[in-house]
């Protein structure tokens, strides 16, 4: 990697400033995102929950609430990443930025941190609501917030990296073909024991499974050593995503 733009990232905060400037005007868009996991919680947790009864000794709503938090952290981060695609390919926002002292690493880190920041606002709101509904079972839940930030950075890093490979809006169908099954199958709505053994191993590979494990154990109050593994897995994904994104932005815009 050529050193034409020093790989620092000190300028990342200016990306955050820019995004704040934009969203100050359309804060409603951010605010409305808060409701989606709540709707899922009320529909599946309480509406359908009546027919499910208890899962692993807890109410169905308690069972899915942490998973919905994890999936909304994932979806939010990926949603922000799709904005990056638009800025990269159509709006040429980064072309302008890179002709200033701000470099590609600043862009990759700045956009990922922004996605995490937005995700944290949602997570915080959601945690308060589920605590008020009595679905939080332990003080370990305080750690759910940093955990949600970690989940956000993993998916934001991967998302921003993926966007640098996308060529047209049609590629988003592919993204949906990964995102939707991950949401549906990574033990969001039922325990992993529902699956036959072979399939259980496939599920264990998905990042969302680890995100859900991490939040479920924290909020239900039973974290253990495996959760360090979950966190490490997500941290590696975040780092890999940012490194790939930096390199790709560098190669595409600074050649």
């Amino acid at each position: 990697m050529s050193a034409i733009a020093a790989v620092t990232a000190g300028g990342a905060r200016f990306l955050l400033e820019r995004n704040l400037m934009v969203y100050r005007r359309i804060w409603l868009v951010i605010f409305s995102g808060f409701f989606e996991p709540l709707f899922y919680l009320f529909s599946m947790g309480f509406g359908l929950g009546h027919f499910v009864g208890h899962v692993n000794g807890i109410s169905y709503a308690s069972f899915i609430a942490p998973a919905l938090l994890a999936s909304s952290a994932m979806n939010g981060a990926i949603y922000d990443a799709t904005n990056v695609f638009w800025k990269l390919r159509y709006a040429k926002v980064y072309d302008a930025i890179l002709s200033t002292p701000v470099g590609p690493a600043d862009v990759a880190v700045g956009e990922s941190v922004w996605a995490v920041f937005r995700g944290l606002i949602y997570s915080f709101g959601f945690l308060i609501v589920i605590a008020a509904l009595g679905l939080v079972h332990s003080w370990w839940a305080l750690l759910a917030l940093p955990a949600a930030a970690l989940i956000g950075s993993a998916f934001a890093g991967l998302g921003v990296a993926a966007m640098t490979y996308f060529r047209s809006w049609q590629d988003f169908e592919l993204l949906a073909l990964v995102q939707l099954p991950m949401f549906l199958f990574s033990t969001t709505f039922y325990p992993i024991t529902v699956y036959p053994h072979a399939i259980q191993w496939i599920v264990r590979v998905t990042p969302l499974y680890h995100a859900i494990q991490l939040l479920r154990t924290l909020i239900l109050g039973s974290p253990g050593l495996p959760q360090l593994g979950d966190a490490a897995y997500l941290a590696v994904l975040a780092a890999v995503g940012i490194v790939i994104a930096t390199r790709r932005i560098h190669r595409q815009l600074l050649s």
């Binding site: 200016f14 400033e17 200033t100 701000v102």
Partner: peptide
């Protein structure tokens, strides 16, 4: 202009 100036710190 404001944000572009910020990019220059």
């Amino acid at each position: 202009i404001l944000i572009y100036g910020r990019y220059f710190g």
